[in-house]
Design a protein around this nucleic acid. Structure first.
Length: 418
DNA sequence: AAGTGTATCAACCGCCCGGAT
DNA sequence: CATCCGGGCGGTTGATACACT
C-alpha cells in the first residue's frame, strides 16, 4: 500500500506563497474543498491534497482566531489536557477559532515549560515531586512484597536498612512500617479502610459539619486539598499509592512517614463505609509553607482561606475525569461512599448537587497559573451530614441518579470521546 | 553590530482508521 | 476478507523571529 500523495513529482513543499494561498482560497470559496485529493488539480496547485488541507485548516480558514492566547484559553487548555491528554484536535474543538496545531505548538513551547517551572509534570498534571515519590513508593511497595515473601518482617526492615532508596530507614521509620503493616494485614487490605481520598474527604466533611461554630480546623481541609494535588506549586507534596496506602511522603525532604491514627475519635455515622479513624499530625507538614487562616465573613458563615506561595490553575482537584465515568452502573449504584462524591466535579457537586439547601453558600476558586499566589476560599454553613443522612436512606437511587446525570453531561459538554 | 541561544510557528512525516472496492 | 485510499491526527522538524550577551 503506497502513500501516493507525497511521492508525486513536481509537487511543491515548504512555505506557501501568497499566490498559492490565493488560489486555494478562491477555489474553496467557490467550490468547497470536496475531496482534498482533487483540490490541487482543480485549483491549479502543485501541492498534494494533504498539504492543501493543512494549509486551509491551519491558516486560511476564515473563522480562525488570530493572536495570542488569552489566559482563559490557556487555563482551558490545561484543564482539557488534564482530561484528554494530547488529543489536540479534541481540545481544539473546545476552543473556537483555534487549531489543533496551534494548541499543540503552544503546549510544547510555552505551557509545558511553565508547568515544569512550577514543579508540575505536564503529562500527569501532578507535582513532579509527587510523581517521583510515587515511583519511590512503588519501588518500596515491590520491596515490601518481596520481603513479605521472605521469612519475616524483620528481615524486610533489615534489608532496607542496607538498601539505598533515598529514604532513610532509621529505627523510628522502621517501627512505623511495622505499625502500618500491622494495621493493614495483607489478607484484610480490601476491607480495611485505606488511607485514600475518601479518608481525607471524610475528615473534611465531618469536620465542617461538626465544628461550624468555630470551623478552626483548616488542616483537614488542607489534607484533602493536598491529596488532590491542589497544592500545585508548593514544594511540599503528599503522595499515596494504592498499593501502600498507609505511607506518606514529605517530598521536601524525601522522608517517609505514616499518619497517626486515633480510631476513637469522631464518627457521626453518616459515612458507614468509611473508617472512623482520623489523620492528625502529618498534615501539619502540608500547611507549613502556606498561610492558612479561618475567618468569619458575616457572623454566620465561617470559612477557610488558604493562601499559597505560588499557584496553579488547578485542574485536578475540581475537575472530572473521563475515566471516572467508566464505572459500571453496578458500581455506581452501591454504597454512597465518598468516592462517589469525588467522581464528579467536586466543587460543582458540592455546590449544585450535594447540597440541596445550598449549605455551601460560596465556593470560589480564584486561581491563576501565572499569578504570584492563589486564594482558595470556601465558606460553609455546614449541613453536609443532613444530605449524607438522606443518602444513607436511599443510597442506591440517589447515587445512581447522580452518576447517570453526570455521565450524560459529559458527552454534552465534551462530545464523544474516542 | 555581531554572535549565540531560545521561542515560536508553519509544515511535513508517518501512522491509524474507516469506507470503498 | 484483503487491499486500497483518503482523511485525520500526533509527533517532529526546520525556518524565522526575537532576546540576550
Amino acid at each position: 500500500m503506497g502513500r501516493r500523495c507525497c511521492y508525486k513529482q513536481k509537487l511543491r513543499k515548504g512555505l506557501w506563497s501568497p499566490e498559492e494561498d490565493e488560489k486555494l482560497v478562491n477555489h474553496i470559496t467557490k467550490y468547497g474543498h470536496g475531496c482534498w485529493s482533487s483540490v490541487p488539480k482543480l485549483a491549479a496547485l502543485q501541492r498534494c491534497g494533504k498539504s492543501c488541507r493543512l494549509r486551509w485548516i491551519n491558516y486560511l480558514r476564515p473563522d480562525l482566531k488570530r493572536g495570542t492566547f488569552s489566559q482563559q484559553e490557556e487555563n482551558l487548555i490545561i484543564q482539557l489536557h488534564s482530561l484528554l491528554g494530547n488529543k489536540w484536535s479534541q481540545i481544539a474543538s473546545r476552543l473556537p477559532g483555534r487549531t489543533d496545531n496551534e494548541i499543540k505548538n503552544l503546549w510544547n513551547s510555552s505551557i509545558n515549560k511553565k508547568l515544569r517551572q512550577k514543579g508540575i509534570d505536564p503529562n500527569t498534571h501532578k507535582l513532579l515531586s509527587v510523581v517521583e515519590n510515587e515511583e519511590k513508593v512503588s519501588a518500596i511497595s515491590m520491596n515490601i512484597e518481596k520481603a513479605s515473601e521472605g521469612t519475616s518482617e524483620l528481615n524486610f526492615i533489615e534489608s532496607h536498612e542496607n538498601s539505598n532508596n533515598g529514604i532513610q530507614t532509621d529505627k523510628s521509620k522502621s517501627s512505623l512500617v511495622t505499625m502500618t503493616m500491622d494495621r493493614y494485614p495483607s489478607n484484610t487490605t480490601t476491607s480495611a479502610a485505606p488511607l485514600t481520598h475518601e479518608f481525607f474527604l471524610e475528615r473534611f466533611i465531618t469536620t465542617h459539619e461538626t465544628s461550624t461554630a468555630s470551623c478552626n480546623k483548616p488542616l483537614e481541609l488542607a489534607s484533602y486539598l493536598s491529596f488532590r494535588q491542589l497544592n500545585y506549586g508548593s514544594n511540599i507534596g503528599l503522595s499515596m499509592n494504592s498499593n501502600t496506602n498507609n505511607l506518606l511522603f514529605n517530598s521536601k525532604n524525601s522522608e517517609m512517614f505514616t499518619p497517626q491514627f486515633n480510631s476513637s475519635i469522631t464518627n457521626d455515622n453518616t459515612l458507614p463505609s468509611i473508617s472512623n479513624s482520623i489523620l492528625t499530625s502529618p498534615i501539619a507538614a502540608v500547611a507549613s509553607n502556606d498561610s492558612m487562616r479561618t475567618f468569619t465573613s458575616d457572623g454566620s458563615n465561617t470559612g477557610i482561606e488558604l493562601q499559597r506561595n505560588s499557584s496553579f490553575f488547578d485542574s485536578n482537584a475540581f475537575s472530572w475525569g473521563t475515566a471516572d465515568y467508566d464505572k459500571s452502573e453496578k458500581e455506581a449504584s452501591i454504597h454512597p461512599s465518598v468516592t462517589d462524591l469525588e467522581d464528579i466535579k467536586w466543587s460543582e457537586y458540592l455546590h449544585n448537587q450535594l447540597l440541596p439547601g445550598n449549605a455551601i453558600t460560596n465556593n470560589q476558586i480564584t486561581q491563576d497559573l501565572y499569578g504570584e499566589k492563589s486564594i482558595i476560599q470556601l465558606t460553609t454553613q455546614g449541613s453536609l451530614s443532613t444530605w449524607l443522612q438522606n443518602q444513607q436512606q436511599q443510597p442506591s437511587l440517589q447515587t445512581a441518579s447522580i452518576y447517570n446525570k453526570h455521565s450524560q453531561r459529559i458527552p454534552d459538554a465534551f462530545g464523544q470521546f474516542s
